[in-house]
Design a protein around this nucleic acid. Structure first.
Lengths: 164, 164
DNA sequence: TATTGTTATACTCTATAACTATA
DNA sequence: TATAGTTATAGAGTATAACAATA
């Protein structure tokens, strides 16, 4: 039964959570952790993702829409609100005068680094509950899952990034 | 560096993702899976969580606010929209004439079961990428993490549920 | 007085449709 | 014509504040 997965409670049926339920609960725990850390800096998850994408790219609005899987009109609003807070700037594209590039400001970069650092510390301290050997094992299994899943979609996680 | 955790890309630096990044990515993958399965039934994550909570409880609006960690006014709107779709019903409380109980309709129960089943199947098929012995190991490690985390908050995951 | 729930209001986030400017 | 982006509009989801009914 995976039914408990949609709320966050444990089954008392067995002394160990089912793998599916456990993984689901852990996922919500970690997602909620990021949500909370972002909220402490007045960021929503989507604003945080926006800033995260911009850390190593200066995409057009259109490219942002594809990466974040949102309509271009949603990106307009998202970038508007981030720009109002001086977290990002719109820059006209040289190559195509219709296009607009979006870049992180220093303030935006500092903010996303801060959130990422505190979130990372949260996950680290969660992992610290396990002995080092278990951590290594967990890391290996999780990597395998991600690699297998990525392979299903024809993506090689470890290929040099071709900066979409 | 946990910096990549806030976007969803892999580091190519090492042949294995850091444990923190890997766990974060896996979490977003699983969260996104639920989001997608819920959206297929026109449900948001929060509507799905609402229905999930109601599967084994008939709480007051106030209790819902606590469980979902939302303001009571947000619960009013949430329940309004679910009630409009005939997924839940408001029932006057006998014990306290100020209070309102919320219950799942048959339609609501069917819907949440459907979403939970398909989501569970997704996670299962992801896990099927691992050999059975690895799955067992992963399950054990994840359970340990959740138990340790719950213990930090003074919660025993395996205690009989005292129906808040 | 305190608590339960609703309503009014405001803002974020999202999509669709219509629009402008450029390719 | 097709594409990049914005704007208008509508609806979900969230919080704060003010309110009504009951405890």
């Amino acid at each position: 039964m995976t039914s408990r997965a949609v709320d966050r409670r444990a089954t008392a049926a067995s002394e160990e959570l089912s793998t599916v339920d456990g993984l689901a609960q852990l996922s919500f725990l970690i997602h909620g952790t990021l949500e909370r850390r972002a909220a402490e800096r007045e960021l929503s998850i989507i604003q945080t993702r926006l800033l995260g994408v911009l850390r190593d790219r200066k995409p057009t609005m259109n490219e942002l829409a594809k990466v974040l899987m949102l309509d271009k009109s949603s990106i307009s609003g998202l970038v508007d609100r981030a720009e109002r807070r001086d977290l990002v700037v719109r820059v006209p594209s040289d190559a195509d005068r219709r296009a607009v590039l979006v870049a992180l400001t220093d303030r935006g970069r500092a903010l996303v680094s801060d959130v990422a650092a505190r979130f990372g510390a949260d996950v680290s301290s969660l992992l610290d509950r396990l002995p080092a050997s278990d951590r290594a094992t967990l890391s290996r299994l999780v990597s395998r899952l991600l690699v297998a899943h990525a392979a299903d979609r024809g993506i090689d996680l470890f290929a040099p990034t071709t900066t979409g």
